[in-house]
Design a protein around this nucleic acid. Structure first.
Lengths: 342, 342
DNA sequence: TTGTAGGCGTTATCAA
DNA sequence: TTGATAACGCCTACAA
């Protein structure tokens, strides 16, 4: 109690007139403990304001109480939603969240990550997309004995290590909605190669068209990389095609904002001349003009669930309830979609 | 080396044929060490892939290597920029970042924070606005011996505990720009009461008008709370005034997007009928239509500097270079401003 | 320049 | 049901 000002387990033991181990048992809710001893110790703990030192526990238990968030996601809102969901799960537990961005492009990414995990000896990590799609990262975690749960747009791993949304189905539904409105010439702005989410969304798009018997010419597909600018460029390509598409599905909101931009630069009215659907339901979707119809996936819920999976069995509460592994997305209908021609 | 698979200082010592202390000296770059011994130990460390256990170090040193980010900022991009800046500073150090959102509205916020800080015994915390403006929080940190640095829109603390932007001056400049363009009826959308940034920005606005000898009727001021919707509502109030303002300064970008929305709903052309300036230069600023003229403050640089202040003296590199405490903002000129009437 | 003994605050083992 | 003793992996103080 001298140096740091914080009382230690020794102080509690001495004052309560019991051994350290007994105090430890009280802290850890050991079942074999006399009621009176427990009460007495708890009294002292309360009086002293004693708080167990997590570092010491980490050392003794050979594992710490840090959950890592490993991400390389460029979208701030998405990352924040994940953080929020994780923290909801970690709230009132002894776990804390440490954030670790990684550089997917870096040649040493895997080595850096290994070094980080080995050094910090994290209790577990939550892998966000798109890095979560990288199987070598999951393998790395498994190899060095670090628990992990991956978030993704499709099931990439066994349920214990995965929470997934079903992007394909969501996009199929969104595209179906455009078709219902009467659209037949529908352009597609895709995400970057190598992204599972990009692949899933495109597959959903193609499935919807196929189901409706609508041909999909190559000219109606343009690839982007999830950025505003790439969406703008892709839209310019699509809008050059004659006859022009009457609707465009964009694989994320940011690119959809670029599509809106491009359309407006050509004097096109949205949704009269062009309907647009995005994906993610980031704040930008509600704030662009006109407000963007988009697909919302339950990011925070997924992250919360993922974190709960990670610490499952560690916390006494309702560990019997299995965390779900598959999450449903919903189409948010706003003003950017109408029947062709108004 | 048995349980965890990770080699310990003992393994290194045994294999290198030296004492633990010698290995410890190598790790901590003690100057008094024979070159050959050092080389030999370093060789073994490399061979074994030995990494010192941060938990054990934390225990022995009675302090850990975690830097906290305490925030209650609703803007995702701002928080992410701060995280990025912090992590840049922490890169290649032994420090990690743990994130702690707090609820400013909660009655137990201060108690929660105290509990968090006492339990985790963080090395230090970075306080983001607006919670950083709360003097009791700073006092709490000081009381329990936790280093802290506050980020803010004005100097609220001594340089060792503060990195600040100069919002007042920035807004004065931005408003001056509108005046230069010929605007005389300029509306102001303010931030929420109790926010220092809101106060500073408003002061800057008023100073600019006063300097130009322009009266500021009460009707030209509408308060918001930094959200899109509040900006929209505020703009509706301002645009109802006759004669209408020819320009509006909005205290952040999100509200400025709401202003744009409101203007468009009335069929006003921006910038012909209404010029708009925002604050923050979030991505939304570049992506709305028309692109928004706004004030950019160097968030990431400020956060990096704040983190470096926190760990100053701990890292050997260039600790002689004092971290700056005041950061300048710049006006980013885009298409949302023109002379009145086009 | 290097080593020994002891401590940081906690938990595990095993005996009482 | 409790307690003594020994870890956990590292660092400081003091010796050699």
């Amino acid at each position: 109690m001298r140096k740091t000002g914080q009382p230690t387990i020794n102080d509690v033991a001495r004052i309560a007139g019991v051994s350290k181990k007994t105090v430890s048992r009280v802290i850890n809710r050991s079942p074999l403990l006399g009621d009176d001893t427990r009460k007495r110790v708890e009294q002292v703990i309360g009086d002293l304001g004693y708080i167990p030192n997590p570092q010491a526990r980490a050392l003794a238990l050979r594992r710490n109480f840090l959950i890592g968030l490993v991400h390389d996601n460029p979208n701030a809102q998405t990352v924040m939603n994940v953080q929020q969901g994780m923290l909801e799960a970690l709230h009132d537990t002894e776990f804390e969240m440490v954030v670790r961005p990684v550089d997917r492009g870096s040649a040493t990414m895997l080595e850096d990550l290994r070094h980080f995990l080995e050094r910090q000896r994290l209790f577990g990590v939550l892998l966000m997309p798109p890095i979560s799609e990288n199987d070598s990262v999951a393998k790395l975690c498994a190899d060095i004995g670090c628990r992990y749960v991956r978030m993704g747009s499709a099931v990439l791993d066994d349920p214990a290590h995965m929470v997934a949304s079903n992007d394909r189905e969501a996009v199929r539904g969104a595209t179906g909605y455009l078709i219902e409105q009467g659209h037949r010439r529908i352009g597609f702005v895709g995400g970057p190669h190598g992204f599972r989410s990009a692949r899933e969304r495109r597959a959903g798009f193609e499935e919807a068209l196929a189901a409706a018997g609508i041909a999909l010419p190559r000219s109606m597909i343009a690839d982007g990389n999830y950025t505003f600018d790439s969406g703008l460029v892709a839209a310019e390509r699509l809008l050059d095609v004659i006859p022009r598409p009457t609707a465009i599905f964009s694989s994320n909101d940011e690119m959809a904002a670029g599509v809106i931009h491009a359309a407006r630069q050509r004097g096109l009215d949205i949704p009269r001349d062009l309907s647009i659907i995005g994906f993610d339901d980031t704040p930008i979707a509600a704030h662009v003009w006109p407000p963007l119809t988009t697909v919302r996936w339950p990011i925070a819920s997924m992250a919360r669930s993922a974190a709960l999976k990670l610490i499952a069995g560690e916390e006494e509460d309702d560990t019997d309830v299995e965390e779900p592994s598959l999450f449903l997305s919903t189409l948010i209908r706003r003003a950017s979609v109408a029947a062709p021609g108004g």
